[in-house]
Write a protein that binds this DNA or RNA. Structure first.
Lengths: 351, 351
DNA sequence: ATATCAGTTGCAAACGTTTGAAATTTTTTG
DNA sequence: CAAAAAATTTCAAACGTTTGCAACTGATAT
């Protein structure tokens, strides 16, 4: 009536020792047989391999990691994965590192700083060989770097994405947010707009501030006064653009263009503009940032600044590899800045 | 002139033995001191803890994993992460398992079957305690399950997402694609459409076929003949809808509604419809699937079938936990089907 | 018969940590 | 001051695998 077996999940995985016992030989022999070591007798090897296969033996990588003091795994900490850019970065890292046998350990912080800190500790404790860190959107003050010091001490290569920080990082890869934003605003000016609003990201973040700087600098260059009432904060999410945009449209006069910190908020803005009975780009031109795939397909199609997420991942991975080879000079971390590219679409055609 | 140190990345992490040597005590003492074991002298403990902290000691989790025969990590294999639904599933899994100390090991296959197989082996070898598998879109025939057998033998709980398979899985969580599709088509019929096209997914996939079945069954129920020329394949990506949609619009008569296998293809279809000078929903109503956040913000806003990704992840995680407790009955894997929900928006308003 | 050699196999240590039991030191008690 | 009790520390084994070296076997050459 009772079951004739211990419950299924108690099955311990079969080990090399188990096999050795079965065959009355030493674990070394089994190990060598399974690894096709030349000094093992042909018959012995075949028998052992056959049995191992049949018994479902699976090498315990954990013990090997301990023995070899390396894990062939690297940590990737990102604020979110539900997002074209972030996943492109991951894809880029993987494209370079996977062929070399590395496994990615992806950690999603959902923008929470505490989790970021926790993950760094966990990854280090798990002896990853490198950490890629796309920092959370919570403000980073000096204290926030504290938890990264261990990585520094251990000399685990630490590569920043979207933020350069020389402290103890092996390097950083960012895109030229500044010039991208500048180009976006310059484009709006070139089609005759003068009252250009900005849906800014959360204050304090690197990308936010760089894009903001591009916006401000461009306005100044063309002699357009920077109007604080045209600058409002969002949190990158589409919903966060709704209220701020409504506010902007209520101004007198309203803006004739909106530059969003990313495509999401730009799309949110366009919805509000439509609902107020205004036209894009006729009444208000809109530009986003990221060039997410969807932006080419919505109506009107969205002008946006493309950032090469995949390439960023690839470059970051290369920095990691170089740092492994000792090529990196720790006094001067590698800092790569990739160009961004304005893609003009209908949302900002000259009307 | 040469550097007075070996290159930075050669710094070996400090171990408990190092500390023991330094303090002329045994490793056991250090271990217990760091773990606040009560039998350790107050002074000893403080000294050791202080030193460990200062020296940047970090417990080697790899050795612990070996010792304890458990890793507190679980594998999650998904075809893609650049996608609202998938990342919601991951979020759901994490929401349940993170508080219990589990770490997620996210593997992205980019829809390649070979990678899926490779990742399963790697995860098992790394002794994850469970595997969540959202199968790739490549067709699964019986042979394709071969690589999962090891998981079965080892009794590592294997939970399928978006596809139920009883073989050796602990369970599966899917959504009711069939009824979701049925509701979508029924809705289109209710607003007077009769010539309803379907942008189908890749043949052979579970979600594809379930939605297709809902489409066909609903048409039949209302006495509408199923017209094969109105059924075309896509690969879930927005671009893959363009040519098929153009083809549909070239038919005489063209369809008066399009049901897309997901939001991406629905959005792609809307773009082509616009470009032909036709109106949504006036000339052609459009319905998608997934209810991705963006669908509420585009113009016209997209009617879509919502599937609770986060909840799916949560349920899957619960199955895993139950299976750990031996609650699960392996003869009859848990199969959970969550309901989907039609969300009507402008793209299918009665004209 | 003995030395040499190649072909096989086994021994033991190592990776870093924890932990029950034993051993040592210190404190308390009669 | 001796004995018992308490406090503190050490020993040794364990987790699963690999690997240099030693050891054994059988065969060949001298």
């Amino acid at each position: 009536m009772g079951c004739d077996q211990t419950i299924s999940n108690m099955h311990k995985p079969i080990t090399i020792k188990d096999i050795a016992r079965k065959f009355k030989c030493s674990p070394s022999t089994v190990s060598r047989a399974l690894n096709n070591h030349p000094s093992i007798n042909e018959d012995t090897r075949r028998n052992l391999q056959e049995y191992a296969q049949k018994a479902g033996y699976q090498r315990n990588q954990v013990s090997l990691n301990l023995l070899n003091k390396k894990t062939a795994s690297i940590g990737v900490i990102v604020p979110t994965i539900n997002n074209y850019y972030e996943s492109a970065v991951i894809e880029g890292i993987d494209a370079v590192l996977h062929p070399l046998g590395y496994t990615l350990n992806i950690c999603v912080t959902n923008e929470r700083y505490l989790l970021e800190s926790e993950y760094v500790a966990k990854l280090l404790s798990n002896r990853v060989e490198g950490i890629f860190l796309s920092v959370s959107q919570e403000t980073y003050d000096s204290g926030h770097y504290q938890h990264l010091e261990d990585a520094g001490k251990r000399s685990v290569p630490l590569i920043f994405i979207d933020r350069d920080y020389g402290g103890f990082a092996a390097g950083s890869v960012t895109i030229d947010d500044y010039h991208g934003a500048f180009a976006a605003v310059e484009h709006l000016i070139s089609i005759g707009r003068r009252r250009i609003a900005h849906l800014k990201g959360p204050n304090g973040m690197a990308v936010t501030e760089q894009r903001f700087r591009g916006y401000v600098t461009c306005l100044k260059k063309y002699g357009i006064p920077v109007d604080d009432s045209l600058i409002v904060n969002t949190n990158f999410k589409v919903e966060s653009a709704l209220e701020p945009t409504a506010h902007l449209l209520g101004l007198t006069p309203p803006p004739d263009a909106i530059f969003g910190v990313n495509d999401q908020v730009a799309i949110g803005a366009m919805k509000i503009i439509r609902e107020k009975g205004l036209l894009v780009p006729g009444d208000i031109a809109v530009v986003g940032f990221d060039d997410s795939p969807i932006s080419a397909y919505i109506s009107p199609s969205l002008t946006s600044v493309a950032r090469p997420g995949r390439q960023i991942g690839e470059e970051a991975a290369k920095i990691f590899l170089n740092s492994l080879l000792g090529v990196a000079d720790y006094d001067k971390p590698v800092q790569i800045v990739l160009p961004s590219q304005l893609v003009v679409r209908d949302s900002s055609r000259r009307s």
